[in-house]
């Protein structure tokens, strides 16, 4: 990938990702509402929410919390930039971990009981999904011979063909990453799920807006991972990728609405079992085959 298209992609990501992410969140709420027999808010409701957060009175429990939250936002954006500039998948994963650690620390810093429970749960979720994400990157590497996104993008065959197990496993942990039921343990978008809003209990105003916006950025990047499974250097592959992204998101909405939150134990057990059964076996098979 040359420098100019790299810059275009990064700038495109910076501008379009929040817009797309916001629309996606709005559509998500609409569809969820329809599934529950409600009319639902306008598509732009997430945007109205964030605008309202920004206009609120600025309050905070201590002097450091909001700094960490801003670091979280910053590093989520950086992670996305590395991804969309065709960077190294492992670096993307590590940068995302760093971002998440900032979020967790922000929640810990207030020493408030509810946000600390949320923080511990967020950490726990990270432990649950991390092996599968790493295995996904390894799968891409085995298929295309590189961890670089731009190389994977132009691989001659769809990685999906070789990575079916890993793809399903990735969809599984996407539920955790999108903060969908049954695994929305650390914080939930549903009012019926959390009495006090977990991780974000002590965030307010701009910090809460930052968490929301980073969520949009992060979701688009995660869908980028899904997209990557279908790239084979042709337009057809790209279209297939986009369609699957939409389907995947819809699937997550369906899952979200079909399940109540499960006990926390299930998240780790099930995602590790998935990582071993689908991820490891797929990687092992690839090593034998390729």
């Amino acid at each position: 990938m040359n420098t100019i298209s790299m810059i275009i992609l990064v700038v495109g990501y910076l501008i379009l990702a929040p817009i797309l992410g916001c629309l996606l969140a709005g559509i998500d709420r609409k569809i969820s509402a329809r599934m529950q027999g409600r009319i639902g808010p306008p598509i732009l409701q997430p945007y109205y929410d964030v605008r309202k957060f920004i206009e609120k009175d600025q309050i905070t429990p201590n002097k450091v919390q909001d700094f960490y939250v801003m670091c979280f936002l910053l590093f989520v954006i950086i992670t996305g930039c590395i991804f969309f500039s065709g960077g190294d998948l492992l670096l993307v994963i590590f940068a995302l971990t760093l971002a998440n650690v900032f979020l967790v620390i922000a929640a810990f810093s207030s020493n408030s009981p509810y946000s600390q429970i949320g923080a511990e749960r967020e950490l726990y979720q990270m432990m649950a999904y991390e092996p599968m994400i790493l295995l996904t990157a390894i799968g891409f590497y085995l298929v295309s011979g590189s961890f670089q996104v731009d190389t994977i993008l132009t691989s001659s065959e769809m990685p999906f063909i070789y990575l079916i197990g890993i793809f399903i496993g990735f969809l599984f942990i996407l539920t955790i990453k999108f903060r969908k039921s049954p695994f929305d343990l650390s914080m939930s978008h549903h009012a019926h799920q959390d009495l006090v809003r977990g991780l974000t209990t002590e965030f307010s105003g701009r910090s809460l807006a930052a968490v929301e916006v980073s969520h949009w950025y992060e979701n688009i990047m995660l869908l980028g991972f899904v997209f990557l499974f279908f790239c084979n250097g042709t337009i057809a592959g790209y279209i297939a990728g986009i369609i699957v992204c939409i389907l995947a998101y819809f699937l997550e909405i369906v899952i979200d609405n079909c399940f109540a939150r499960m006990k926390w134990q299930v998240a780790l057990k099930s995602s590790w079992v998935v990582a071993v059964m689908l991820g490891v076996i797929n990687v092992g098979a690839l090593m034998i085959l390729l």
């Binding site: 429990p61 201590n62 002097k63 450091v64 960490y68 971990t97 650690v101 967790v104 620390i105 929640a107 810990f108 810093s109 207030s110 020493n111 600390q116 923080a119 511990e120 950490l123 726990y124 990270m126 432990m127 649950a128 991390e130 092996p131 790493l134 295995l135 390894i138 590790w272 990582a275 991820g279």
Partner: peptide, 22 residues
């Protein structure tokens, strides 16, 4: 390594959380 590093992040960050609490 995949599982080990996930676990590693967990125990370090929960310690980090204790340190940063105000």
């Amino acid at each position: 390594v995949c599982f080990g590093s996930a676990v590693t992040a967990f125990y370090w960050t929960k310690w980090l959380g204790k340190l940063v609490a105000i």
